[in-house]
Amino acid sequence: MEKLMMKGSEAIAEAAVRAGCRLFFGYPITPQNEIPEYMSRRLFEVGGQFVQAESEVAASNMIYGAAAVGARVMTSSSSPGISLKQEGLSYCAGSELPVVVVNIMRGGPGLGGIQPSQSDYWQSTKPGHGDWHPLVLAPSTIQEAADLVMDAFDLADEYRNPVMILGYGLIGQMMEPVAFREYQPREFDKSWTTCGCKGRPPNIVNSLYLDPNILEEHNHAIFQKYERMKREEVRFETFRMDDARFCLAAYGTVARICKTAIAQLRDEGIKVGLIRPITLFPFPEAVFREARVRWILDIEMSMGQMIEDVRLAVRGRTPVHFYGRVGGVVPTPDEIVRKVREMYKEGVK
């Protein structure tokens, strides 16, 4: 198939349609409006349904309903809107519903701004109320965003759990060439759905458990799924780590900025590599733990959120330092080069 030049939002929407998503419920917010806009046009062509809900809360309850009847469904929003969706997403997790959520983050807190930011690492990997996690996938290119969306639908069905695609203004808005792979549909058990009970007892999809012992059991069952995710679904990219003495940690397009910086630093003889988590939950702990480096420099467009997981991963064996820009300011390769050069010259441990 010939490649297309696509915005990230368009590629995410198109990949969802190709993965069998026929239902989309959303509510507008910058910088992800191109996702609902594309869906409103594209779902019409393929016999799907698009609803602009009256609010984010409504949209997140609509995906609950759609998933409960066994449909492939997606919603999308940006940081403050994701806060509103958190209630419904927790219900989806509690009811073990496969849903795909896209969060195109913006700067915060509060209304914040609309420029690129990674301010939602926490609310994505360690979300709203209740003991639960979505599986979180963080693309760094438009091609990867399209690929991960297709995987997201399968992962949601595999684990009957919300899966989140985490991007921000750059992933949502910039254009890059994309080729869509042929999506191979997989069979999943849908015997639990509420799609008509003729000839069998009715199924109930609910997250209410009044008996504490049963709710405890339910929580354990959910966390067994997370343990399996940790064993089987962790994804990451390493870049020039083979002989690295220093390691950068970054996710999303920040990793691409780091790669440009690393090319420069390597020219100067500073042996630095990069670990880019692709799954933020489950977090790629082992690769950080096993990296034999003097220090790790965690770089984020936040005040330092992923750094907590990096520190937990290395268990105090490797010093973890931080460099961040916030508010919608995107770090430049030069800034990162200067920071690493400085640490190198000062012999930071």
């Binding site: 962790v234 990219e237 870049f239 990793a255």
Partner: peptide
């Protein structure tokens, strides 16, 4: 970047 010769994308087997 994905096709970069230095990059390796992996599924971690813990």
């Amino acid at each position: 970047p994905q096709r970069d010769q230095w990059s390796r994308i992996m599924l971690q087997e813990v």
